[in-house]
Design a protein around this nucleic acid. Sequence first.
DNA 1: GATGAATGAGAGTTCATTCAT
DNA 2: TATGAATGAACTCTCATTCAT
Lengths: 212, 212, 212, 212
Amino acid sequence: MPREVRERQMLDAAVAVFARRGYRAASMDEIAELAGASKPLVYLYLNSKEDLFSACIRREAEALIAAVRAAVDPGTPADRRLWDGLRGFFAHTAAHPDGWAVLHCQARTHGEPFALEVAALRRRLVDVVTQLITETAADGGCTAPLPETEVAGLAHALVGAAESLAGWSNERDGAAASETAATLMNFAWTGLENLSHGRRWAPVAAGGGART
Amino acid sequence: MPREVRERQMLDAAVAVFARRGYRAASMDEIAELAGASKPLVYLYLNSKEDLFSACIRREAEALIAAVRAAVDPGTPADRRLWDGLRGFFAHTAAHPDGWAVLHCQARTHGEPFALEVAALRRRLVDVVTQLITETAADGGCTAPLPETEVAGLAHALVGAAESLAGWSNERDGAAASETAATLMNFAWTGLENLSHGRRWAPVAAGGGART
Amino acid sequence: MPREVRERQMLDAAVAVFARRGYRAASMDEIAELAGASKPLVYLYLNSKEDLFSACIRREAEALIAAVRAAVDPGTPADRRLWDGLRGFFAHTAAHPDGWAVLHCQARTHGEPFALEVAALRRRLVDVVTQLITETAADGGCTAPLPETEVAGLAHALVGAAESLAGWSNERDGAAASETAATLMNFAWTGLENLSHGRRWAPVAAGGGART
Amino acid sequence: MPREVRERQMLDAAVAVFARRGYRAASMDEIAELAGASKPLVYLYLNSKEDLFSACIRREAEALIAAVRAAVDPGTPADRRLWDGLRGFFAHTAAHPDGWAVLHCQARTHGEPFALEVAALRRRLVDVVTQLITETAADGGCTAPLPETEVAGLAHALVGAAESLAGWSNERDGAAASETAATLMNFAWTGLENLSHGRRWAPVAAGGGART
DNA sequence: GATGAATGAGAGTTCATTCAT
DNA sequence: TATGAATGAACTCTCATTCAT
């Protein structure tokens, strides 16, 4: 059996086992068995448990980014791109729950080496979203430019909301990606529009909210 | 040294170590040492690693819920309560980063017994937020009642956004709770208002967004 | 509570726990709890687990010997004394199953210090039986004096048979001591009589047995 | 080194250590060292301490039964078979004192799982002896059929006597199997013959024995 | 290319035992 | 007389990892 095929089988098995058990609790025995190969072969191809986990993270991260990219048509306006990107994101996480679990749940909780790789992925997502937010604001006729920090905060909020909704829509497994994406768009887009026109919420001493 | 004091020290140490290393990688030796006690004493008081972790989760979850509750004044309008709750939430996660890490990162990734306890916590948060969203809509003069599923989705999105922002504001550690809360409020509240008046975003075939 | 009473309670508890769990698996915690005392008190009175076990063995061995002695009337003929002794033995083992279990099952299997004490007890029993066998033979009009080794062997066989029957009759717990004793007497006594008159069994080349 | 060989070495070592120390006090470290292998290998091949002990019991029990069976020629009369079986039994226990110690002393004292396996072995022995007793009585021209309970009691007595003599003859280690077997045969066989002709021992009020 | 055989290191857990009071 | 608090040492078991073939 050619090396490439074997290696993919190993990564598939590893992703499944890491997702189910977590990094520490996953055993190389189980991964090798699920991959249908012997343990020494796994070591020959992938060096160590740490490298194997890294390889999983990298592969799944690239796949997720690629899925989002592929869903977006650069020629369309910013809000449409945001919407398409979210749909691509939710569709991919729904189709690859193990990969998503590894990225979202497991990789961040196991020390520097892996957390860094996932942080890099997240930064890429946040960057994309930041860009979209800026453009969205501009497209909508921005009259009150947002400070950089706030944009970053919004981007993090949006990514967090998306991650949370990915889990939520995986649980109620009928939910289509479009539906989930629509929920988030409705939530986010109008908020952005208001912000970019300087309409903000502010606390009022005696309670009650008011736009400035 | 009286038992109660020792037990609290042990929980403190355990939370710190679990946050740093994760459940599996944390060793009872390290916890005991950090607590300034011997391993057998930890077992005498807290039974097992599993029970110890459960105790950590329960304590931190109760503390978080209590902090949010304490921040909210029931006599104020819904948007004010949402705002106060968020501030309480961000203030608490900023003040107890280890506890938050245990709840958010570690507990959900380590098998049924723990995931269930954290899921229960999250459900409580989502329920509170759901309630607030409904009331906020009503207070704002809701003209287009939101379907239940959508409210749930929004609540999950908001909680996810809050979780994500908690991490983000912990990283750039100058960020005050109020600032983070303001970012999220601005993002969420106006979005909600639009939704509750039937102003929605919808994709347009040729790109571009439109309100229905 | 006076020391003597407490000490007896401790020994009772220890015998029960040692019988049920064995020497190694028995824990001082369980013994102390069953005795209704704190662990340090057990140590104060009985020094160590080893000493405690020894004390159990000694007490139960003395009790067993005493029961056998008390059952025998020195003024009666040897066969009667054998019969009475067996009845006493079976009655005592039936009445004190835990003590008997400690002596018969546990004490012999746990290294020199204890095995020696039980061996001493067994030797005493064997000596008594040896004496009875000799007298029984004499009383029955012995015409063929038995070699010493054979007498010792017979005594060991008889004691082993008695031990085995003690367990057997404890299992089918209706069995009265007299009944069990009768079974063994019938088995042993006539055999002895034959032997002491030189009637022996010997193998025959072509199979079949024959008396010489 | 092939697995089968290693596995036998491990069982040999385990039997030796279990015999010397008992189940609980035996340490896997000592067993592994005596087997000339590492501890993990022992676990790889034999799973757990419990399984290892079970495997010892089973192996030694089968070996003992096989030795007794092999010593008996089914074509010979019952008394001859009893005699041959006893010789086989004593020869085997003398040749394998550790195995015998595990079966007789250790296995019965350590909780259900093992006690049951040894009980099964003992039942097989008792059954064989019961059968022989019945046949012996018949061959000798039985005029007074023995009640079933009594036969069972006799069988237990005989097995107990044999077990006791096995230990005794192992101590004085010159004793040949034939000699020990002869002692027991003389003791048992004539007793049986008398019983099967209705000659019994019964207590007399004023002492003294009498045949009925 | 592929594997059966083997292990060093370290984990969770338990227990006999002792102080300070 | 009696105990709550505390521990050193040992045990079973697991796992990532490597040779020799």
